[in-house]
């Protein structure tokens, strides 16, 4: 069974939007997402004579897009390793109050810095709202791996955004330090007084 030109166009038009949105969630780059989907459809066209049409092609397209996007992320992260791009440190912002919008953009940045596979799993769970089992099937890995990678994603995210999260703690710590110092000074004064009296 092969795909006719009409079937092909129908396949494109009915899936294009969702696949672009899926790819964009993974790579967070709209132009990149559109290129990825073009690649997927080109692959379908080139194998149109051998492709199995007895099953709906939606699942195949979904998997192909996920994997192509993952490869894209991996090649980019390899490139960035060579360039050694340094992200400005979050440390500077600790003293300021950040808005919700800023926090969201920081979270997205942390997501973009995650290892590709970890990020894809997180995105599929969080935004595509797939079950762990579905993610495992999609990426051909075990459910246990999905669990571990999800936990790892949270750990990385918390680690990266610690400066924003522990602000309150810092203030408490600073106050505690100051009061300890005052305490010490007053003790010192008392001792001096006592000495002078003798």
């Amino acid at each position: 069974m092969s795909i006719s030109t009409i079937q092909y166009e129908e396949l494109f038009r009915s899936n294009h939007k969702n696949l672009c949105r899926l790819a964009n969630r993974i790579v967070n780059d709209r132009a990149g997402a559109e290129d990825i989907v073009q690649d997927v459809f080109l692959k379908v066209w080139n194998s149109r004579d051998t492709i199995q049409t007895d099953r709906p092609l939606g699942g195949y397209l979904y998997t192909a897009t996920t994997n192509t996007a993952l490869n894209y992320l991996e090649s980019i992260s390899r490139l960035n390793k060579y360039r050694k791009e340094y992200q400005p440190s979050n440390e500077e912002k600790t003293s300021q109050d950040i808005s919700l919008k800023e926090l969201q953009s920081e979270v997205q940045k942390a997501l973009d810095r995650m290892p590709p596979k970890c990020k894809v799993i997180f995105v599929l769970s969080r935004f595509e709202e797939l079950r762990y089992k579905q993610i495992a099937e999609q990426l051909n890995i075990s459910v246990k791996t999905v669990e571990n990678q999800m936990g790892k994603a949270l750990e990385i995210m918390r680690e990266e955004l610690k400066p924003f999260l522990t602000r309150e703690f810092l203030i408490i710590a600073a106050t505690a330090g100051l009061s300890a110092l005052l305490h010490f000074l007053s003790l010192l004064l008392i001792i001096l007084q006592v000495n002078r009296n003798f």
Binding site: E34, Q104, R126
Partner: peptide, 11 residues
């Protein structure tokens, strides 16, 4: 506070 990057994206 993770925001869906594709929320208002229509290719």
């Amino acid at each position: 506070n993770t925001e869906d990057p594709s929320r208002d994206y229509t290719p």
